[in-house]
Amino acid sequence: MTSKNKEDYLRSIYELQTKAGGSVKAGAIASKLGISKPSVSEMMGKLKNDGLVESAPYGAVSLTGKGVEEARKILRRHRLLEVFFSDFLGINAFHDEAHETEHALSEEAERRLEKLLKHPKKCPDGDEIPRRGAKVLPLARAPKGKPLRVLFSTLENEEELASIKALGIIHGEKARVLKKINRGPLILLVKGAEIAIGADVSSNIYVEVGG
């Protein structure tokens, strides 16, 4: 197993998780990466051993805190490179170019590239570039009053998932914790409305703070 391969998996799981919410099924990963389900299962075993993903019901997986951080690091590099290839070099196949290059980019090179590109916020497809220094944590542990950005949820219950989506608690949405009861529910300000969320739900919603 190459680390390049592993990075692709992490990035795909993260992207799937932020798009759909909830955990990610092996089938979805297989079709996204265009590989067979058995090889996905094999890789999942390895990622679990590394503590990057954890099992969810029905054979699905979701990223661990460590997994999220890894995935965001890769995604950041990938999207920065996409901006570089698309806007700077004018290459149409910017996605494939970025895909090939991302695994080789050093942290130093990444930092300089970012400066060169004038700290872009979005990739050419319009998706957010994960910010450096941002902390990812469950909403349940988010500090009161600080601006947050919703990343994804790991809720398993379809009804809960549907209701947070309907309330606009979706990837990229800005939010702020207004009130909080210790080990209890919190009130989140999102889309101009105050939403009370119980601890069991808020510990399954991941947000980004600062950065």
Partner: peptide
């Protein structure tokens, strides 16, 4: 039966 989490809008 499934336990559902608490999600409720707090109106002004």
């Amino acid at each position: 039966g499934e336990r559902l989490g608490f999600i409720m809008e707090i109106p002004p």
